[in-house]
Design a protein around this nucleic acid. Structure first.
Length: 153
DNA sequence: GCCAACGTTGGC
DNA sequence: GCCAACGTTGGC
């Protein structure tokens, strides 16, 4: 199976592309939505490529590219009572939530959500049609357009 | 800060 | 198993 493209959302106040650039590799912890989890657990493979997207800011945008460094494994924060992501129904024997590790590749000149929405060929991107999903596949044809948009800046 | 979209929970 | 109530996400 050829490498696929994904998009991961993050609130930059919590974890930004700059944070990823400095840590190089990060566990994508804290995903607590089943559809997002299923994509991560079942379909994200090592060496798949990932757009990093900053959400919940004045101008939400794709800001960089990363690569999957490790396939899904149980998210340790679900077992940690001190964590905001603690889930009392999860056990190490039956984990409920998973994460992947991603490795920083490069920053992109921001491709804003408004630019994406304005592009006719991107209007059926899941980013646009499923605005609340935080982990989603990106079709190759959409990835190519996005990368071309980043080159123009 | 508001609120629409939508996922989850729990009573029946 | 339905669906109302509730909680969260995330754009604006």
């Amino acid at each position: 199976m050829a490498a696929r493209w994904w998009l991961l959302k993050t609130e930059p106040d919590e974890f930004s592309i700059d944070d990823l650039e400095s840590t190089k590799v990060a566990g994508w912890e804290g995903v607590r939505n089943y559809q997002a989890r299923n994509f991560m657990r079942d379909d994200m493979k090592k060496s798949d490529q990932v757009f990093i997207y900053h959400s919940s800011i004045p101008s939400p945008a794709i800001v960089g590219v990363a690569i999957v460094d490790r396939q899904a494994y149980p998210d340790p924060t679900q077992f940690d009572p001190q964590s905001d992501y603690f889930d009392e129904k999860a056990t190490p024997q039956e984990p409920r939530w998973y994460q992947v590790d991603v490795r920083f590749q490069q920053k992109l000149g921001p491709i804003t959500l408004s630019e994406i929405k304005a592009h006719p060929e991107l209007e059926d991107m899941m980013l646009v049609t499923r605005s609340r999903l935080s982990v989603m596949p990106v079709e190759d044809k959409h990835a190519r357009i996005l990368l071309a948009m980043a080159d123009e800046t």
